[in-house]
Amino acid sequence: MSPRAIAFDLDGTLAESKQPMTSAMAELLLQLPVVAVLSGASWPQFQSQFLSAFPTGSDFSHMYLFPDNAAQCFVYKEGQWHEEYNMVFSPEEIAEITTILINEIEEADFPQPLETWGKQIENRGAQISFSALGQQAPLEAKKAWRAEHDQQRILLCATLSEKLPKYSVRMGGETTIDITKKGITKAHGLRTLAERTSIPLAEMVYVGDALQEGGNDSVVIETGVQTRSVRGPQDTEAFIQELISR
């Protein structure tokens, strides 16, 4: 039986990391019944990377967008995107997280690059993200850094999880660590999708490039949703075409 709702990761699944999604992918997504996109990306990044790929006048009424690892939810009503919820941090929470993050980076002697592209620590309101090379680093630089230093990122993520027990801490993308309120993850986003659409999780499929243990998509497995692992946008296109042809 074909899934009634299809949920996707963004970077590495619908598009290359922080690169614009193709118009061909956008056309395919418009042909699916119910679509959700769950990503550590901010809402402005969703707008520039994802929504910009669609033709003017597209109908998004079948889409649910979950930026900041589902700390936010946007739905399309009456021709506009509306924020359904936003799990923003308080000023005190921001100060606590930022202080501990900076201290642990220094304590761990975390490898500092010779060059960065944009801010390493970004407060997105509902999520605080640390990107080792900066938020705007080119994909090739991020892949090279990950190949050499990902073990240090794994260790830093584990330490932050211990030091910040009131929050959810997870790795994202090639070089990033994301922090949200406790329990606010992609799994939370899928459960929200099930509540709002009345589609059981067992009748959905989640498509992602990091479903392996410890990967930033693996948290969805706990929901019981069907999963499809892909190696990049080309794999995702092929899977969508398979669904459409059923």
Rank of each mutant, 00 (worst) to 15 (best):
5 A>Q: 09
5 A>K: 05
6 I>Y: 01
7 A>H: 06
7 A>G: 12
10 L>T: 00
10 L>M: 13
14 L>E: 04
18 K>L: 05
18 K>Y: 05
18 K>R: 11
21 M>E: 09
23 S>L: 02
24 A>K: 11
26 A>F: 15
27 E>K: 15
33 P>Q: 10
33 P>A: 08
35 V>Q: 08
36 A>I: 00
42 S>P: 04
42 S>A: 11
43 W>S: 02
45 Q>E: 11
45 Q>P: 01
49 Q>R: 11
52 S>Q: 13
53 A>G: 08
54 F>S: 01
54 F>Y: 05
56 T>D: 11
58 S>F: 12
58 S>M: 09
59 D>R: 05
60 F>Q: 05
61 S>V: 01
65 L>C: 13
73 C>I: 00
73 C>E: 06
81 W>C: 07
82 H>K: 09
85 Y>T: 02
85 Y>R: 07
85 Y>N: 07
86 N>K: 13
87 M>F: 11
89 F>W: 10
93 E>S: 06
95 A>L: 11
96 E>N: 08
99 T>I: 00
102 I>F: 03
102 I>A: 14
105 I>Q: 06
109 D>N: 14
110 F>D: 01
110 F>E: 02
114 L>Q: 09
119 K>N: 14
120 Q>R: 15
121 I>W: 15
122 E>V: 15
126 A>C: 15
129 S>Y: 02
140 E>D: 13
150 D>A: 12
150 D>W: 14
150 D>R: 09
151 Q>A: 11
152 Q>L: 08
154 I>C: 01
157 C>M: 13
158 A>T: 06
158 A>N: 10
161 S>D: 14
165 P>A: 06
166 K>L: 14
166 K>H: 15
166 K>E: 15
167 Y>Q: 12
168 S>A: 13
171 M>Q: 13
173 G>P: 05
174 E>D: 14
179 I>H: 13
180 T>M: 10
182 K>I: 05
182 K>F: 10
183 G>P: 04
184 I>G: 05
185 T>M: 11
188 H>V: 07
189 G>K: 08
192 T>H: 15
196 R>E: 04
197 T>H: 03
199 I>Y: 12
200 P>M: 12
205 V>K: 03
206 Y>H: 04
211 L>S: 08
211 L>N: 03
214 G>K: 05
214 G>T: 05
215 G>M: 09
221 I>Y: 01
229 S>Q: 14
229 S>K: 11
229 S>L: 12
232 G>M: 08
232 G>Y: 12
232 G>T: 11
237 E>T: 00
239 F>C: 00
239 F>S: 02
246 R>G: 03
